[in-house]
Amino acid sequence: MVDFIFYRTKYKGDTIPSADFPSLIKRAGDQLARYKRIYIVTAPEADSEGMAVCAMADALYGFDLIANGEGGAVRSASIGSVSASYSGAGNDAVDVTPVGQARELFRCACLYLDIYRGVH
């Protein structure tokens, strides 16, 4: 399993807080294991699987933020007394439906892994 040091140093991630990392990386790893069960997954480089899991963990963190009302596209912001509001709907909204999340996780995995259905 990928650790927080790999996330920070090799993947160069800076989004996920260390306290949230273990659960997110487990969820991302479980998703990669699912892909391996149903697809042909090859890693072109030694760190490809770790990089893919980190990318999926970043996406999961973003989905969690949106679900908690803390993320999404910024609709307005103020500097004095710090205020921000995020859009939850509209053309600029992130698709957080189960299908949208699955599509994004697959896209993240495909950034680093070759994933095929059937024979390649």
Results as ranks from 00 to 15, higher is better:
79 I>V: 15
64 D>C: 07
61 Y>R: 02
48 S>I: 03
40 I>R: 14
53 V>F: 07
76 S>R: 14
66 I>A: 05
97 T>N: 05
69 G>H: 03
65 L>R: 07
59 A>D: 11
90 G>H: 08
35 Y>A: 09
39 Y>M: 13
49 E>M: 06
77 A>P: 00
65 L>V: 03
42 T>S: 00
43 A>T: 10
84 A>E: 11
92 D>I: 03
63 F>Q: 02
37 R>E: 14
73 A>R: 14
69 G>A: 02
66 I>Q: 06
71 G>P: 03
49 E>I: 05
40 I>F: 12
41 V>D: 02
85 S>C: 11
101 Q>H: 15
82 V>T: 09
49 E>W: 04
39 Y>H: 14
93 A>C: 13
40 I>E: 14
62 G>W: 09
35 Y>R: 07
50 G>E: 01
52 A>N: 06
37 R>G: 12
74 V>E: 14
63 F>G: 02
61 Y>I: 00
85 S>G: 09
41 V>C: 07
71 G>L: 04
83 S>C: 09
36 K>T: 06
36 K>E: 14
85 S>E: 14
70 E>W: 08
91 N>L: 12
101 Q>D: 14
46 A>K: 09
51 M>L: 15
59 A>F: 04
72 G>D: 02
56 M>K: 07
44 P>N: 09
78 S>Y: 08
94 V>A: 15
46 A>W: 02
93 A>V: 10
53 V>E: 08
58 D>E: 15
97 T>Y: 03
57 A>C: 09
82 V>G: 09
38 I>F: 11
88 G>P: 07
96 V>S: 09
56 M>E: 10
75 R>K: 11
80 G>P: 00
87 S>G: 15
98 P>R: 10
65 L>E: 08
78 S>L: 07
79 I>T: 15
41 V>G: 03
55 A>W: 05
38 I>A: 10
82 V>K: 10
74 V>P: 08
67 A>C: 06
42 T>Q: 00
96 V>G: 03
97 T>I: 03
62 G>V: 13
55 A>K: 11
36 K>C: 11
48 S>A: 13
57 A>I: 03
65 L>S: 03
62 G>F: 08
41 V>F: 06
100 G>E: 12
37 R>D: 13
53 V>R: 05
35 Y>K: 04
66 I>Y: 04
49 E>L: 05
70 E>R: 12
60 L>S: 07
57 A>R: 00
89 A>S: 15
54 C>V: 01
81 S>D: 15
75 R>E: 11
37 R>H: 12
50 G>Q: 00
79 I>N: 13
75 R>T: 06
40 I>T: 14
100 G>Y: 08
96 V>D: 08
81 S>Y: 13
41 V>N: 06
71 G>F: 00
97 T>R: 02
62 G>L: 14
86 Y>L: 02
95 D>Y: 01
40 I>H: 12
50 G>P: 01
64 D>K: 10
101 Q>W: 13
76 S>H: 13
53 V>G: 02
75 R>Y: 06
36 K>Y: 06
86 Y>K: 03
37 R>N: 14
42 T>Y: 00
82 V>I: 09
43 A>S: 14
59 A>M: 09
57 A>T: 03
56 M>G: 05
81 S>T: 15
84 A>H: 08
66 I>F: 05
82 V>Y: 08
88 G>Y: 11
96 V>N: 09
64 D>L: 08
92 D>V: 02
